[in-house]
Amino acid sequence: MTALHWAGLLALAVIAGAVVPFQSAINANLGRGLGHPLWATLASLLVSIIVLLPVIIALRLPLPSLEFVSKAPLWMWAGGAFGVCFISLALMLLPKLGASGFIALAMAGQILASLLLDHFGLFGLVERQLTTPRVLGALLLMGGVALIQFSATPARALATTG
């Protein structure tokens, strides 16, 4: 793989991460408007289907194998449940923790879970041992998460005290 290809992949990963706080903030507002975060979760997933189906059709993707669908282990279908969990928790927590606080804490959970997934090579991933540098990197990221979450002073509090 060329350096340019790697740079493109890294940029796409950053973009994937960058859309999450926008999605969460927009859906939190939608949840308030609809009366409950779970309605916004449902709306978000329905919009996902509405956006995705034309892309699948435009790309002329073949239908999935019914044989695979009928034989796939149950854990392979859990991604949708994890998506509902993330979207719903984001809708409930983002207004309370702020965008940076929620995303930092969510990232902390992602880092910890990712280290375990890699270390044990779960779900077909390549095993990547839990080494001292990887643990140190995770601890440094966790320190950053703590700084982001616990050093924030709400703007309204500043306005009333200053």
Rank of each mutant, 00 (worst) to 15 (best):
L140W: 09
L66T: 13
G109W: 05
M92A: 04
L89Y: 04
M142S: 11
L130T: 09
K96M: 06
L136M: 13
A104L: 12
L147N: 07
G137C: 11
A113M: 12
P64C: 06
K71L: 10
R134G: 04
Q129W: 10
S70M: 10
L97S: 03
V145F: 01
S151K: 10
G79R: 05
L94W: 07
A90C: 10
G101M: 09
P64E: 10
S151N: 14
D118Y: 04
A72M: 14
F120Y: 15
A108T: 12
M142H: 07
Q110I: 02
T131S: 14
L66I: 07
M142T: 12
W75C: 01
E127T: 14
F68K: 15
W77H: 07
L93Q: 06
A72G: 07
G144F: 09
L61M: 15
G143C: 06
R128T: 07
D118H: 08
L117A: 08
A113K: 03
P133I: 08
L63I: 03
F120R: 12
T132V: 14
G143P: 10
A72K: 09
L66M: 14
L66K: 07
A108S: 13
L94T: 15
H119L: 07
E67Y: 05
G80N: 09
L117P: 08
D118P: 13
L141N: 01
P133D: 10
R134S: 04
A78W: 10
R128F: 03
G143L: 13
C85T: 07
W77V: 04
L139W: 08
T131H: 03
Q110A: 03
G98D: 02
I111G: 00
L97E: 01
G109F: 03
P73A: 00
L91V: 10
D118K: 12
